[in-house]
Computed example of a mutant assay.
Amino acid sequence: MVPGVISGQRFVLSPTQLGVEVAEGPRRRLTIYEVEAGRVMEVVSGLGAALRDGTLDQTELIDRTSAPPEVVVYEAG
């Protein structure tokens, strides 16, 4: 696990949406990490390093060629 990460949870895009049919696409999977306060940049750096060196536990279902993982940071508000 990456230092500063409290927990992580994986999701798969549901076929059930609000009045919209979901098309197959490259970004159907999402992982949300809960991070210790004040350690966001450390975690982002650690996740990037773990992605590069192969130590981050990832599902093989992600198409890294057409849609490589991207990191987006949100804060409570």
Rank of each mutant, 00 (worst) to 15 (best):
R64N: 05
V35D: 01
Q17I: 09
V2E: 02
S14R: 06
A50V: 09
G19L: 09
R52V: 14
M41R: 08
I6T: 08
M41E: 11
P69A: 14
R64S: 04
E42C: 01
T55C: 14
A50M: 07
E21W: 03
S14M: 05
V20G: 09
Q17F: 14
L61G: 04
L61S: 10
A37P: 05
V43G: 00
L47Q: 02
G25P: 03
G25F: 05
S7P: 02
V43D: 00
E24M: 09
V43F: 00
T31Q: 14
L30S: 14
G19F: 05
T31N: 11
G77N: 09
E42H: 03
V20W: 10
E70C: 07
T59L: 03
G8H: 06
I6V: 15
E21L: 05
G25C: 07
L13D: 04
E21M: 07
T16G: 06
P68V: 04
F11L: 12
G48C: 06
L56Y: 08
D53L: 11
P15R: 11
E36Q: 08
L47K: 02
L61R: 09
R39N: 01
T59H: 06
V20N: 13
D57R: 13
V72C: 09
V71R: 11
P68M: 06
V73D: 08
T65S: 06
V40D: 03
E34A: 15
A50C: 07
Q9K: 11
V20D: 12
T59C: 05
P3G: 06
L61Y: 05
Q58G: 10
S7M: 00
G4E: 01
P68T: 04
E70D: 12
L18Y: 12
R29E: 14
P3Y: 04
M41L: 05
V2M: 02
E24G: 12
Y74R: 07
E60T: 13
M41T: 03
V12M: 09
V71P: 02
G19N: 12
T31P: 03
I32N: 13
M1R: 14
A23V: 12
A23P: 03
A23H: 10
R28L: 10
R27C: 04
P69N: 15
A23M: 09
Q9R: 13
V20M: 13
S7I: 00
V73C: 09
V40N: 00
Q9L: 08
P15L: 07
M41I: 01
R27I: 03
F11Y: 15
A67S: 15
P15T: 11
E60W: 02
G54Y: 15
Y74I: 05
L61A: 12
A50F: 05
E21Y: 04
A76P: 04
I32E: 14
E34W: 06
E24F: 07
T65E: 11
V43R: 00
D57M: 12
Q9P: 00
P26D: 09
S14W: 03
G46R: 02
T31W: 10
L18S: 14
M41F: 00
L51R: 13
R64H: 08
G8V: 03
A49N: 14
L30Q: 15
L18R: 12
V71C: 10
I62C: 01
P3E: 10
T31I: 15
S66H: 10
G48F: 01
Q9E: 12
S45N: 09
G54L: 14
E24S: 11
